[in-house]
Nucleic acid binder design. Sequence first.
DNA 1: TATTTATTGAGAATACTTTTTAATAACTCC
DNA 2: GGAGTTATTAAAAAGTATTCTCAATAAATA
Lengths: 151, 151
Amino acid sequence: MSMYTASSLKSELNDRGWRMTPQRETILQIFQNLPKGEHLSAEDLYNHLQQMGEKISLSTIYRTLKLMARMGILRELELGEDHKHYEINQPYPYHHHHLICVKCNKTIEFKSDSVLKIGSKTSQKEGYHLLDCQLTIHAVCPACQRAISPL
Amino acid sequence: MSMYTASSLKSELNDRGWRMTPQRETILQIFQNLPKGEHLSAEDLYNHLQQMGEKISLSTIYRTLKLMARMGILRELELGEDHKHYEINQPYPYHHHHLICVKCNKTIEFKSDSVLKIGSKTSQKEGYHLLDCQLTIHAVCPACQRAISPL
DNA sequence: TATTTATTGAGAATACTTTTTAATAACTCC
DNA sequence: GGAGTTATTAAAAAGTATTCTCAATAAATA
């Protein structure tokens, strides 16, 4: 949960016998420049790249997203849609969580230092190396509470 | 996040114009009788039912799981595998969270009253009706930290 | 600079989940 | 309790997200 630059990413990859590529650098940059609170699906990222004139294949995108999530660079979000979303994994004090309406998928971000503390304390206690910690709240938003429940 | 019985489930369904069915009752029972800490995928549930001699189709299973998750009866868990898992949504003090190794998917359960409090306070503040609140910690377990990182 | 081999792109393949449809059966109203 | 309405089911087809395969490419290393 620290900040990455192209060169720190390269070092970490090389340390493990992996390689830095233009594709990985581009994808990292996109997530770093994303407006706060935005997150992309694989498809979103693909389209975003196309608009920039960058041509990175979908397979590479899926591979890179998974790789970066496993490195702790990106967070993999489950926002109630049928695909995952990704966002940059920012450290304290930018770290945040999500409140999701299970009916309309409307999502609200919120912060909580205590949750972050509990996350790091828990992983430490078990000897785990912390990558990300997200509190996901599933609930029904005010609008959907009023609606005549359509499933 | 309260306990359900066949009849309380029926009332809640009927209130919304839906129906109680033997399939829904059976599935509720299975989750209620599941040993603590166990969770099932759609496929797992299907096999479980087959072994019991119950024949419920996969489509019904998928429909029922989603329905019960949206009602707050079940929790939908994302445990790093390529499919969702479900478990009964137990209230305090049985409510718990998950610490997951992003490499081998080994999962540890842990409890935290404060997280539950933060969850209910946050949803209340936004006017949301709370269904479930899960802290998911992504990390690398001790064994995988030692292993020569295979992706 | 040559060598090794991780990575890429393209498309095929897989896996999970949803949809469609006709038949069934739960609920409601009389 | 019975008839009518319509939510629900099973089965199969369809859809969608994601992973895999493989030959070509290009990082890293020596």
